[in-house]
């Protein structure tokens, strides 16, 4: 009984803390179509580059096709095309970030990967523009003054977006 009470108190404290100033999350930042985006490293399984993508017919153009990662086949999506931007020739900077979102594994093709940094999620604000596309779900200004966009991985995995 007393144990339960203790955990309850603990929970309340935890809750209080998260309501407070900071909620630090390690995030991967990457660039695509001139935008710098970030995404929690929790969902990133690996980053690969220079990888052959096999196109699949009859699907929207932002789905580049499928890739073979160690014998398993996953879809690959181009973030640029997701945002309705023109296709760029893939270079040696072009990367595929493999994501595992609620056991949906997919790769996203981005122009380049930047770095891993800590981002305080409580500082992330909604984007103040009404948009039809929902690839991004927030923005944050980091220490060096740059503005990063929060990448909405859930919308991507659930396929709401196309």
């Amino acid at each position: 009984m007393s144990n339960q009470e203790e955990t309850l108190v603990q929970n309340v404290q935890d809750f209080g803390e998260s309501e407070g100033k900071q909620s630090i999350e390690r995030c991967l930042t990457f660039e695509s179509g001139g935008l710098v985006m970030f995404l929690s490293t929790e969902y990133v399984t690996e980053i690969i580059n220079d990888y052959p993508i096999t196109p699949i017919p009859l699907v929207p153009s932002f789905i580049k096709g499928v890739i073979n990662v160690r014998g398993r086949i996953f879809p690959a999506l181009d973030i640029r095309l997701c945002m309705g931007m023109p296709q760029l020739e893939y270079t040696n900077k072009t990367c595929i970030i493999m994501l595992n979102i609620d056991s949906t594994v997919l790769g996203i093709v981005v122009d380049s990967v930047q770095k891993v940094m800590d981002i305080d999620l409580n500082q992330v604000h909604p984007i103040p523009i009404k948009r039809r596309q929902k690839l991004l779900d927030g923005m944050v200004t980091v220490e060096d003054g740059r503005v990063l966009m929060s990448f909405d991985y859930k919308a991507l995995a659930s396929g709401q977006y196309n």
């Binding site: 699949i56 017919p57 009859l58 879809p75 949906t104 594994v105 997919l106 396929g159």
Partner: peptide
């Protein structure tokens, strides 16, 4: 194919 493609009805094509 990955289940991601299910909604595109590729099986019927």
């Amino acid at each position: 194919l990955p289940s991601f493609f299910n909604e595109f009805g590729l099986k019927n094509a």
